[in-house]
Amino acid sequence: MTDWVRLTLPTIVAASIASPAHAVIYLSVDAAQKLAFPAANRFVENGGLTWKAQAGDKLLGLFVVDHVIGKHLYIDYAVALDSTGRVIRVDILQYRESYGGEVREPGWLAQFVGKTSASPLKVGGDIRNISGATLSSLHVTEGVKRILATYGSRAR
């Protein structure tokens, strides 16, 4: 039978701790360009953070990089438009959440209590993730719409 235990965590200060910056670099601009337009052999700067993807002289589409910037949130993302002005793909290039300045990982980890030796708290590994209240991606979706409105006709 599933039983429960209770832990009383009376105040937020005692119960939780500032996270270190949650930052992931997923893709460089170069790598994202190549993934979006594998047939392209050059990317011609087109002003701002936009590039024309070309195979020789043939225009394959447009590659646009944009940002979402908030007090604690920074997202770099790239939108690839094909030569008809449609979105081919949207990639997050970099995601960064940061609160209360930089908190160094080892010191932050030390604040956790390892319960048993049978389940040692693993430090390291290249994957660190967060679960909890779901983050909305609405701002990126809105950004993609703006890019489509601005550049959709220029891609042709």
Partner: peptide, 25 residues
């Protein structure tokens, strides 16, 4: 968005946000 699954040999550390202060773990 935090609903996740893993397979393979690696272990994955997941920080769970404090629902009262999601900026904290």
């Amino acid at each position: 968005g935090g609903d996740l699954a893993a397979f393979g040999t690696r272990q994955h550390a997941i920080d769970i946000r404090d629902p009262r202060r999601p900026d904290r773990a």
